[in-house]
C-alpha cells in the first residue's frame, strides 16, 4: 500500500523538472518532500497522481502502476494540489458533498474519518469556499481529499500561506490520519515541518540530496554549529563571510548559524575578531544543527 519510485525523469520541453528520482514510502508512513520552490516537488506529485507521464522510470502507488493502472489509482488516492483547487462559488458543504458524490460515497458514510477536521470548519458550512481564510481553505481541501477514504494521500504544500497556529493544527491532523493507516506523502518548503515526518527526502533542482529520518539527517551534519548574535545583524553576516576560517554562515531567526573550517575552534578567537571589526553585544554559543542546516550543507555540494 506504499509508494515506490525508481529512476523517474521528467522534463518540460527542454527544462529538466526532476532527474533520477528514486524513493520508497512504506505503507502507513508519513513521508515528507522537503525543498525550496521550483525543486520539483509538484512534478513528483503530479506523476504519482497520474496527471503527468514520466519520461523515464517506473512508479507504483498502492501497488498499482501509475501508467497502466491509472484509473484504479484515481479511485484510491486523495490528492490535494498546491493551489487551492475547490469551487470558490460553492459553499463548504456543497464542495464536500460534490466530492463525496463523484467518488460514489456520502458525507455520512465516511464522516468519522473527517470528523476532527470538518468540525472545525462546520460553523462556516454555508459560507462560499472562496470567502474562507487560508487555514480553513486547507482544512476544507483536506476534508474533500479524504471523503472517499483514500489509502494514499498526496498533499502538495498544504501549509503554504497558512498561519502558524493552523499549520500546527494541520500537522496534528496528519498525525491522526496516519494512525488510521493512511500512507501520506506531503511536501513543504518549511524546514521546521520536516521534523514532524517519519522520513524525509531533501530535494533541490530536481534531484534528491538525501533520504532519511529527520534525526539521522541532522546527525549526519559534519560540523559543530554555533549561534552567533550581535547588535548589527547585517554587519555581522558580512563580517563573518569575510572571516578567513568561515565554513558557512546562515541567518537563522535572531541568530546566525556559524560553522568553522578548523577542527579545533576556540570561540574566544571569533569573539575577538568580531569585536575588532566594531561589533558589540556579541554572544557565541554552541547549538544543534537542524534540518535547515543539513539542507544548506547538502545543497552546497
Amino acid at each position: 500500500m506504499g509508494i515506490s519510485l525508481s529512476n523517474i525523469d521528467k522534463s518540460y520541453k527542454k527544462q529538466i523538472a526532476v532527474r533520477n528520482i528514486t524513493f520508497d514510502v512504506n505503507p502507513g508512513e508519513l513521508f515528507g518532500l522537503i525543498g525550496p520552490d521550483g525543486a520539483g516537488k509538484t512534478t513528483i506529485f503530479r506523476i504519482l497522481a497520474t496527471l503527468l507521464l514520466p519520461d523515464n522510470g517506473k512508479a507504483t502507488v498502492a501497488g498499482l502502476d501509475i501508467i497502466k493502472d491509472y484509473k484504479a489509482i484515481r479511485n484510491s488516492v486523495g490528492y490535494m494540489p498546491g493551489r487551492f483547487s475547490l469551487y470558490q462559488d460553492l459553499t463548504v458543504e456543497e464542495n464536500l458533498n460534490f466530492f463525496a458524490t463523484i467518488f460514489g460515497t456520502t458525507i455520512a458514510e465516511n464522516y468519522d474519518l473527517i470528523k476532527d477536521i470538518y468540525e472545525q470548519i462546520a460553523p462556516f458550512k454555508d459560507r462560499r469556499a472562496g470567502k474562507l481564510s487560508g487555514g480553513m481553505k486547507q482544512k476544507l481541501a483536506l476534508s474533500c481529499a479524504l471523503i472517499h477514504k483514500p489509502k494514499v494521500l498526496f498533499l502538495d504544500e498544504p501549509t503554504t500561506g497558512v498561519d502558524p497556529v493552523s499549520r500546527k493544527e494541520f500537522w496534528e491532523m496528519l498525525k491522526r490520519l496516519q494512525k488510521r493507516g493512511i500512507t501520506i506523502l506531503v511536501s513543504t518548503p518549511y524546514m521546521d515541518e520536516a521534523a514532524l515526518c517519519d522520513r524525509i527526502a531533501l530535494i533541490q533542482e530536481g534531484e534528491i540530496l538525501d533520504i532519511d529520518t529527520p534525526q539521522a539527517i541532522v546527525d549526519k551534519f559534519p560540523k559543530d554549529i554555533y549561534n552567533v548574535k550581535a547588535d548589527n545583524m547585517y554587519k555581522l553576516i558580512q563580517t563573518l563571510q569575510r572571516y578567513e576560517h568561515t565554513y558557512s554562515v546562515f541567518p537563522f531567526g535572531e541568530f546566525v548559524h556559524y560553522t568553522d573550517k578548523r577542527v579545533t575552534f576556540k570561540t574566544e578567537e571569533l569573539q575577538h575578531y568580531l569585536e575588532s571589526s566594531g561589533l558589540n553585544a556579541i554572544t557565541i554559543a554552541p547549538t544543534h544543527a537542524d534540518i535547515e542546516d543539513a539542507f544548506m550543507e547538502l545543497a552546497k555540494k
Binding site: A49, T50, L51, K71, R74, N75, V77, Y79, P81, R83, F84, S85, L86, Y87, Q88, F99, I102, F103, G104, C144
Partner: peptide
C-alpha cells in the same frame, strides 16, 4: 484555469 480540473482528473469521473 482554477486548477479544479486537476482534481476532477484524479477522480473516478
Amino acid at each position: 484555469e482554477l486548477g479544479t480540473m486537476e482534481i476532477l482528473l484524479v477522480s473516478p469521473l
